[in-house]
């Protein structure tokens, strides 16, 4: 992607002060997002992908210490005052959460909750906001929007609620949509519908999307570019097709090996041995060293820097696939 980036994140680190001591959740992560781009962030549970995204609009609890910068539209989101930050949230950068069942307020109607965003940011009247809510419900393909707009969240199914969340996120035509595991809580057929919807949104509205997921299938489906995270670090970044065709980092290779392939008979899916490390401070060696087949002395004593193995293909590994093939 050669266009001027919409969002440029540099050296983002997040540390939590917990009762058990500090926890380094994200360690010096940098990436960019171009207009109209769909960027997938993949990784296992606890790899810091959600924390990374939430820190961008500063939705993390106060126990989180965030450093680095996230420049959006010329301003650093991490240094923004609360008032200006609120003008970005929901208007420029919207967020869709993983849990559609609990992310909507049970005591307000769907229309209220969608309308609230446009009333706040665009200053619409109550009546105009309701009209806009109906349009948005239509946009996210909720049947009978005129009726649904006055319903409460408990009257809707999980998939419908996620559509409402998407409608709410799109209410002000944001430039960036952060979708944090939007399909994880939904069953497979509903998932496909939501992904279709997100693809359509990108086509029709030109919204750039950051899609956080642990599901590589989802990423392969709609992402242009993919970042693989492991234990708080970015370990690989590549255009989606390239990543699937020629993964470089042993972790990515492992992840792809763990995907069941229809038609291929396999006795057992491949797994990556060991556990994800939880660090109190940034590790001074490769985060994947303990679980890596190719780990050696260098891996255990030095931090691998990100380097380009091909154009647009970065990997933080001393022994990427490309080197071993050579």
């Amino acid at each position: 992607m050669s266009a001027e980036p919409l969002l440029e994140v540099s050296d983002l680190s997040v540390r939590f002060d917990t009762d058990e001591g500090p926890l380094q959740a994200v360690d010096r992560v940098s990436f960019t997002l171009a207009p109209r781009e769909v960027l997938g962030i993949v990784g296992g549970s606890g790899c810091g992908k959600s924390v990374t995204c939430m820190s961008l609009v500063r939705l993390l609890p106060q126990t989180a210490a965030v450093t680095g910068s996230a420049v959006f539209d010329g301003v650093d989101l991490l240094a923004l005052g609360p008032r200006r930050l609120r003008r970005v949230r929901g208007r420029e950068i919207s967020y869709i959460f993983q849990e559609p069942m609990t992310s909507l307020n049970p005591v307000f109607t769907v229309g209220d909750q969608i309308g609230e965003v446009v009333r706040r940011h665009l200053g619409l009247s109550r009546r105009a906001a309701r009209q806009r809510a109906v349009e948005l419900l239509q946009l996210v393909r909720i049947p009978a929007p005129e009726r649904r707009v006055d319903e409460y969240p408990h009257q809707l199914s999980g998939g419908m609620r996620q559509r409402v969340m998407i409608a709410m996120a799109l209410a002000c035509d944001p430039k960036v949509l952060i979708a944090d595991e939007p399909t994880t809580a939904l069953d497979v057929t509903i998932q496909a519908g939501i992904l279709d919807l997100m693809r359509e949104i990108r086509e029709r509205l030109g919204t750039a999307i950051v899609l956080v997921t642990h599901n590589l299938g989802v990423v392969a489906d709609i992402a242009d570019r993919v970042i693989v995270m492991y234990a708080g670090r970015k370990v690989e970044e590549a255009p989606a097709e390239e990543l699937f065709a020629a993964p470089q980092h042993p972790y990515t290779v492992g992840l792809l090996g763990a995907i069941p392939r229809p038609g291929e008979r396999q006795e057992r899916l491949e797994e990556i041995p060991g556990r994800v490390p939880a660090a109190a401070a940034p590790l001074e060696h490769c985060v994947f060293a303990d679980r890596c087949r190719f780990a050696d002395e260098t891996t255990r004593t030095q931090v691998p820097a990100l380097r380009a193995v091909r154009r647009d293909h970065l990997v933080a590994c001393f022994h990427p696939e490309a080197d071993r093939a050579a």
């Binding site: 609009v57 939705l59 970005v88 609990t102 049970p106 965003v117 940011h121």
Partner: peptide, 14 residues
Amino acid sequence: TDYVRTARAKGLSE
């Protein structure tokens, strides 16, 4: 709760 987080993400005032 999650819905309060949603409300914050919408850019609503405190």
